[in-house]
Design a protein around this nucleic acid. Structure first.
Lengths: 224, 224
DNA sequence: CGCATGGTTTGATCCTCATCGAAGCATTCT
DNA sequence: AGAATGCTTCGATGAGGATCAAACCATGCG
């Protein structure tokens, strides 16, 4: 009936809430794994996998296999631009943003992002580590500084033995709109926070809640 | 689970083939009636009406009631830009354009656009009428020229008695990408073409097929 | 008024597709 | 090799929504 490119096909890919959440999560430019995207979208892993297949087939995503992990990312700036455009219209015509509930507040402060910490606390931590030259930041790239090994060893984190997965990665924080620390180091830090019982995870949520003494300890170690 | 504007809602509106066709048809900037959009989308009038309600509720369309007619148009340039962006991605990743079938060829030459003629023939006709100053064109606006009344009266078309609906309107042609003539004059011309049996409509298609003598007559009257 | 025309609403049908549990692959770690 | 982890495929279920026929409203015409 109609000629031209099949815009309905593309739009319907974005038109599913789960897929839209995934694409939104990928708008930061960081490629993410299926597990993390499932978490972001709030669906089970099989469901997420199915959605990812469709997005791949539709040409909206690229896939980079690294060992046992499979990192999904946006196919390119054109796709990102399209998401931007749709977001713009949604913002303009949408029923205005829902007021943030109490749990959202906690999420903003600190939450789990796959295997590392995200939120205001996490962004502040990365800023401070870079300030102190423990980590060296070059735009998107983060590397260990000269004093990193000794600094992290002091708190029981080993950054010497290099695994395949990058030690440091920047991950865009959707609440603060700036990067926080991902990678094995980010994961190790989150492990320590939970192991030391500085904070606990909210049930059925990604929120991470610090206890008062836990918060002090965290600030002493990472924000001093 | 996710904050921010509801992009899935907007995208899913565009994600239905019928609605996508309607939006595509409106990309020319001309507001169209429900009947015409139903024709463009290839669905029944009730179905089209339902879709139009959804697009209205979603804020993608505006509605201008003129007497018994209701003209639907895109809500604004932002919406048009979004469609453009989606089209761009669809074009880039899409399975390339399907090769045009034989019927598509005929459609390109001449077809019905609601109640008037569209396609290469129609675009050529408008060009010629403007060239000869029978019609005066000022960008999107088309008006009758001084010699219009006598010229059209000679072939049995009355442009004197003014109805509510505009006599002339520009309508963007999707195959040629330039405007052709709509409005009551466009409708009257199509009527004449069919009444004189210069051409006939294809069954179950919008294609209009000229007979050899019909084509000559048409060219003599409108392209001379 | 009554008829015709343009549009919407209602109701019923049907089908796609989103979802998740369970099982199956693949890769890495020990 | 065996265990563990990350991810995909299969199968069954269920819900949303696209569709059209028929009935219903509204506007214009004679």
């Amino acid at each position: 009936m109609r000629e031209g490119p099949d815009i309905a096909r593309i739009a319907s890919l974005v038109g599913d809430p789960a897929r839209a959440n995934m694409l939104n999560a990928l708008m930061g430019g960081t490629a993410l794994t299926a597990s993390e995207l499932a978490l972001e979208a709030g669906v089970s892993l099989p469901t997420a996998s199915s959605h990812l297949s469709k997005l791949m087939e539709g040409g909206l995503l690229t896939l980079a296999s690294q060992g046992r992990h499979r990192y999904y990312g946006l196919a390119g700036p054109q796709v990102a631009g399209m998401i931007e455009a749709i977001t713009g219209v949604a913002e303009a015509v949408g029923p205005r943003r829902v007021r943030p509930g109490p749990r959202d507040g906690a999420m903003r402060v600190a939450r789990v992002c796959y295997d590392h910490l995200a939120g205001e606390q996490a962004v502040a931590m990365l800023d401070r580590l870079v300030d102190k030259n423990i980590l060296l930041r070059d735009d998107k790239e983060i590397r260990l500084g000269p004093s990193a090994a000794s600094h992290f060893a002091a708190i029981g984190i080993d950054v010497q033995t290099r695994p395949r997965r990058p030690v440091c990665r920047a991950c865009l924080d959707w609440s603060v709109r700036r990067s926080h620390l991902a990678g094995t180091l980010g994961a190790a830090i989150l492990d320590k926070i939970l192991a030391e019982k500085w904070a606990r995870r909210e049930k059925d949520s990604r929120a991470v809640v610090f206890s008062p003494p836990g918060k002090q300890a965290f600030e002493r170690v990472f924000l001093a």
